[in-house]
């Protein structure tokens, strides 16, 4: 654990949130450094999405602290998160189905010319970034409801990376993607990481986790099982943490 020397980009300390009686996240602490990918793992309903939604502003935590570059910040809504250069790809993608790709990509941050939204400029920018992310993408002038799951996902990814995020949250970004597109997202993650972004990656595919993540935090029933350096463990160790909810013996000491 040599990261303690530097101030983390993001530090979530002792975060708790519950819905009614259910403790969806129960005193969880995780952190993230610039240029680092931290995997967030756990069974369905473990609380991964809920935890990152406290950071993205979708939920308000009940207790705990969020620090960015060592300073405590208040994130009450998605606008606060965006102001901190936090971008999120939600598991549900959060797209307005009736709008086209460009309108979705720029939703809440429209490009304007003399006060009016500049659709042509936004479409041109969308074409540029989609050309990088998914060169086969052609459906620029139809509502995103007419897109395939993977195409929708690439729109959501484009939205997150377009605005020069410093902190990127990706909640199962490759769930609907084909092998080729998944490979492109993997390359994108490596590229963004090289640019110094910090990335939280929620991912069920252990193979992708081993390949892309520097560290992995495992959750079970709302609690943190532990955080490990990926290069110190095998995939079986991580699977063990997810299923048994215990750190492997050789690291627990």
């Amino acid at each position: 654990m040599n990261q303690t020397a530097r101030t983390p980009l993001v530090e979530m300390r002792d975060i708790s949130i519950s819905f009614g009686g259910i403790k969806a996240v129960d005193h969880v602490s995780i952190d993230l450094h610039p240029g680092e990918v931290v995997g967030l793992l756990g069974h369905n309903g473990a609380g991964k999405s809920t935890l990152i939604k406290c950071l993205s502003g979708a939920y308000q935590k009940d207790a705990g602290q969020i620090l960015i570059n060592g300073e405590e910040v208040t994130i009450n809504n998605p606008r606060d998160a965006r102001a901190q250069n936090i971008e999120t790809i939600y598991q549900t993608l959060a797209l307005a189905d009736n709008l086209d790709a460009a309108s979705n990509l720029f939703l809440g941050r429209e490009l304007r010319r003399s006060g009016l939204v500049d659709d042509a400029k936004m479409e041109a920018e969308t074409r540029k970034i989609m050309g990088r992310l998914n060169p086969n993408f052609r459906k620029f002038n139809v509502p995103v409801s007419a897109l395939s799951g993977g195409q929708r996902q690439s729109v959501a990814i484009a939205r997150a990376v377009y605005f020069n995020a410093k902190i990127l949250i990706m909640d199962e970004p490759t769930a609907a993607l084909g092998p080729h597109e998944t490979q492109m997202v993997a390359e994108l993650i490596q590229e963004l990481k090289a640019q110094g972004l910090g990335i939280f990656l929620i991912e069920h595919d252990i193979h992708n986790v081993m390949k892309l993540c520097d560290r992995a935090s495992v959750m079970k029933n709302g609690q943190l099982v532990g955080t490990v350096n990926v290069k110190d463990v095998t995939d079986d160790d991580i699977l063990g943490m997810i299923i048994l909810g215990k750190k492997p013996a050789h690291l627990a000491a």
Binding site: R79, Y90, L95, D97, N104, G108
Partner: peptide, 11 residues
Amino acid sequence: GNPDAAELSGI
């Protein structure tokens, strides 16, 4: 189209 998406987009 999607009230949640609008909210999450900072609207």
